[in-house]
């Protein structure tokens, strides 16, 4: 118990500490791939430090919602991070059925973020909020199609056990896992507002999703939002990396090595996708998400019939 809890706390701290680094890594790789030098690897830390020291400006007409929403966002992300195994370490929060809690905790952060965006009373934020609400509709189905089916196959309902159950089996299972990982990757791209769904670097309000929702936040609020964004990206990265584990044996050291290589591979993948993909038109995004959902369904059918 004591050691397990300690490991869990260490993994939460790892997620909290390294998530900006991961975002920096993705940006750096993207820059290199497009032939630029790019910002330093630690740029996200510098930006967070800068934002932390600024004064907080709230929009006229905003209410307590905008003031507590960044906090709710950060707290929910930390709780979500505490449910994920880093390496082979058992997370702090792990009980039967926590897969549902995980999905809904992310839902809570989204709920408050949409409210906070609408709280400003500007149509830019409204636009972002409406898009977020629309696209988020597909997030939970995709999540449950992937992890729910693994859960049904393994019989576990705890995220830690589900991720652990992904083992080297037969070839159809491996195909199944690979397709699952693609589905989750597409979800991660949407949820973390990366290309080709959303462009984190764009500065045109009309085309943004996530960035436009926090357009009027500054100082500490923006710091909190960005930090939660980094954590969210890292959470999805960890989910994605857990598909890599079956290709190894067990063991803590190996787990850590795979964790690090997995992060690097994933960051490269994100960088490559962001380099070669162009942004979809807004009206095509539901099709993209439906595609991710559909391969989830297809995948499950394939697996069931070949079993």
């Amino acid at each position: 118990m004591g050691l397990g809890l300690l490991q869990g706390i260490v993994s939460v701290l790892v997620v909290l500490g390294l998530s900006p680094l991961f975002a920096g890594l993705v940006n750096k790789l993207k820059a290199i791939l497009t032939g630029r030098i790019g910002a330093p690897l630690l740029q996200p830390y510098y930006e967070m430090q800068r934002l932390f020291r600024k004064e907080t400006i709230n929009a006229i007409g905003s209410s307590f919602i905008s003031r507590i929403s960044p906090l709710v966002n950060l707290v929910t992300m930390i709780i979500a991070a505490a449910m994920l195994p880093v390496g082979f370490w058992k997370p702090v929060i792990s009980f039967d059925g926590d897969i549902i809690l995980f999905a809904y905790i992310l839902g809570l952060s989204r709920f408050f973020q949409i409210l906070a965006a609408m709280d400003i009373g500007s149509s830019f934020e409204g636009m972002g909020a409406a898009r977020e609400a629309t696209f988020a509709l597909f997030a939970e189905p995709i999540f449950f199609f992937s992890f729910g089916s693994i859960s049904f196959i393994s019989g576990y309902t705890s995220l830690y056990m589900i991720l652990h159950s992904i083992q080297h089996q037969n070839i159809s299972y491996e195909v199944f896992i690979v397709i699952c990982s693609i589905s989750v990757f597409m979800l991660a791209v949407t949820e973390c507002s990366r290309m080709p769904v959303d462009d984190p670097n764009t500065h045109l309000e009309l085309t943004m999703i996530h960035e436009v929702m926090i357009l009027d936040n500054s100082g500490l609020d923006l710091f909190l939002y960005q930090y939660s964004g980094y954590i969210k990206l890292f959470i999805y990265a960890i989910l994605e990396i857990s598909f890599f584990y079956p290709f190894s044996g067990q063991g803590y050291l190996l787990g850590i090595i795979i964790f690090i290589t997995g992060s690097l591979v994933l960051a490269t993948a994100l960088g490559v996708v962001e380099t070669i993909a162009s942004r979809y038109k807004m009206k095509n995004i539901p099709q993209y998400l439906l595609f991710a959902t559909a391969i989830g369904i297809l995948n499950l059918l394939i697996y069931t019939f070949t079993r």
Binding site: R53, K54, E55, T56, I57, N58, A59, I60, G61, S62, I120, G121, S122, F124, E125, E205, L215, D216, G219, L220
Partner: peptide, 11 residues
Amino acid sequence: YGKRVSDAWGC
């Protein structure tokens, strides 16, 4: 670090 209210961004 300070706190104030200001107009929302109106483009």
